[in-house]
């Protein structure tokens, strides 16, 4: 079956993306001596705890030292610190995949856990909420406005959106966010400057949802502004290119009504490349979301990333880089599957 094979090839490439990312990360960590340092810190931590436990029972300092040293040697061997880093690679990759990277230095969950896994599990849904909403709105805008202005090339509206797309390409997402805060939160004082809920957050469901919406307006607008420009323009170009094809002229010459030509002859042909490009644009929206979360203090993984950089928390940075790659790959895979169902002719 061709369809299944296509998906398999696609899935394999995306799986390779994860493998390459893991390899790249761990080779870099190993070659720069970062992994040695991290393991050392981990071992020293455990040795310290072990020693504190023994101090009560063993009085003789030399005996204590000998036992502690023994324990340390066992740990060094267990973590593979006695071997050069290339030998440790499989183990290192496994630890990244299971988030076994120690505790976060300066971040904790709502319940107070500093386990990296817990932190990510808490922040992930908040990031996904922001990203999916913004990508959804942008895609909708891109498709509707793009096809609309394609019917009037050279008009004022068309030129406005072509300038808009150039601006949205040149505009740094985070700066747009900062400007929004300056204008809407600082001067006009009509929207909150950041966060996800008011403090204290409303407890009932409906006020709580409205509060969330109120806080989400600025971050979502920022992301939509960054993403929609190129998507509108892309749709417009694709539709316009298709509209200039001979078979469309034939359809028009047959006297078919314009909206039917648009629907049946143009959009149907232009849709697959448009969707492909929107899928490819996903990577850009992840980057935009990291920056937007940072600017607005949206408590997702992007803000966690920034915290990790500021507090020089390498374990958290490694984990987040891996999670973002994973999210990206999974989202891509979902879209690919949807896409194949929309257009079974697709071939790679």
């Amino acid at each position: 079956m061709r369809l299944g094979r296509n998906l398999l090839v696609r899935g394999f490439t995306l799986l390779m993306v994860v493998v390459v990312t893991l390899l790249l990360m761990n080779v870099v960590l190993g070659a720069t001596g970062f992994s040695d340092r991290m393991l050392n810190a981990l071992i020293n931590d455990q040795v310290r705890i072990y020693r504190q436990g023994l101090v009560q029972t063993i009085q003789d300092p030399t005996e204590l030292q000998r036992i502690v040293n023994n324990y340390k040697d066992v740990l060094i061997e267990a973590y593979g610190l006695d071997k050069p880093w290339p030998m440790r690679l499989p183990q290192m990759i496994w630890r990244v995949m299971t988030f076994d990277l120690g505790k976060a230095k300066n971040a904790q969950t709502f319940k107070g856990s500093t386990e990296i896994y817990d932190l990510i599990a808490e922040r992930l849904p908040k990031s996904i909420l922001l990203i999916t909403t913004s990508v959804g709105i942008s895609a909708l805008l891109g498709l509707t406005i793009g096809t609309k202005i394609a019917t009037m090339p050279g008009s004022k509206i068309d030129r406005f959106f072509s300038n808009y797309s150039a601006f949205s390409y040149a505009l740094p997402t985070w700066w747009t966010g900062i400007l929004f805060i300056l204008i809407f939160a600082q001067y006009l004082r009509i929207l909150p400057p950041g966060g996800m809920y008011s403090a204290p957050p409303p407890t009932e469901a409906i006020p709580r949802f409205l509060d969330l919406l109120f806080h989400a307006i600025l971050p979502i607008s920022t992301l939509v502004l960054a993403l929609s420009g190129s998507w509108i323009y892309l749709t417009r170009t694709m539709v316009l290119n298709t509209a200039q094809q001979d078979f469309v002229n034939v359809a028009r010459a047959k006297g078919l009504p314009e909206n039917l030509v648009m629907r049946r002859y143009i959009i149907r042909v232009a849709a697959p490349p448009i969707i492909t490009n929107i899928i490819l644009g996903l990577a850009g929206s992840l980057s935009g979301a990291i920056l937007t979360e940072t600017v607005f203090g949206w408590p997702g993984m992007g803000l966690l990333y920034w915290n990790a950089i500021v507090t020089v928390d390498e374990g958290l940075i490694i984990a987040l880089t891996f999670v973002y790659t994973l999210i990206y790959v999974i989202a891509r895979m979902i879209l690919e599957v949807l896409y194949v169902f929309l257009d079974p002719r697709v071939e790679y």
């Binding site: 990360m25 870099v28 980057s287 490694i318 990206y328």
Partner: peptide, 21 residues
């Protein structure tokens, strides 16, 4: 193949990681 894989990496997270390390 290589360019397909590299082109499919989410750029900013990897950039952050590499520059940080």
């Amino acid at each position: 193949r290589v360019s397909d894989i590299l082109n499919n990496l989410p750029q900013l997270p990897i950039l952050i990681f590499l520059v940080f390390i």
